[in-house]
Simulated assay, not measured.
Amino acid sequence: MSVLEGGMVLTETVPGALPEQRSRWPFFVCLALLAPIVAYVLVFKVPEWQNDEKLARLEERVSMLPLPPDTEHDLGAAMQGTVGLQSGNSNHCDYLVHMPLLTKLPDAEIARYYESAVIEGVAGGELSGTVYVNPSGSWREGFKGVIVEFFDGGHEAGFDMRCH
């Protein structure tokens, strides 16, 4: 230790006593690895999630339709919804909901019921159902299986890769 003329004291430091400066390269490596993942999610997954939400709302509206008389949900098969390219050749999103039912109604009557039923589509338009009758009947006496489809097509695809 030495004293300088102004009363200042100089001290000698041991080389290991100074704090080490941290390297910043791990931070930048992590950032470089995370950036493409975040970009992928923002560009491709967010549009998929948005379209999945639109499909879920459409399924909810279909499930809220009152059933015609002598008709019930087929408990052996659940309602199914699909979003993606369902018709045509490319670059648009289609939404399709299948609702399996069991009915005692004549084919023409159940078809007429769902053709006249109107629900709000994905973009606010009106949709009606199309009925497909299972010709082999059902496992329950007196009932036949039918599938009611609600199709809403031709919407903007965006970056949802299922629609290209």
Rank of each mutant, 00 (worst) to 15 (best):
M1H: 09
G7P: 15
G7R: 15
M8I: 12
L10R: 14
T11E: 09
T13C: 05
G16W: 06
A17I: 02
L18R: 07
Q21C: 03
S23Q: 13
W25Q: 04
C30F: 03
A32V: 12
A32Y: 04
L34Q: 05
L34Y: 03
A39M: 12
F44V: 01
Q50L: 13
Q50S: 11
Q50K: 13
N51M: 06
K54S: 10
L55G: 00
P66M: 07
D70H: 04
H73F: 10
H73T: 03
A78S: 13
M79S: 05
M79N: 05
G81M: 10
Q86D: 04
Q86C: 05
G88H: 04
H92W: 07
H92S: 10
D94V: 09
D94M: 03
D107L: 09
D107T: 12
I110W: 02
A111D: 10
Y113F: 15
Y114K: 06
G121I: 07
V122M: 06
L127D: 02
L127F: 01
S128C: 02
T130L: 08
V131R: 02
V131N: 04
V133I: 13
R140G: 00
G142M: 09
K144M: 10
K144L: 10
I147A: 05
E149S: 08
E149L: 03
G153K: 00
A157N: 08
D160C: 10
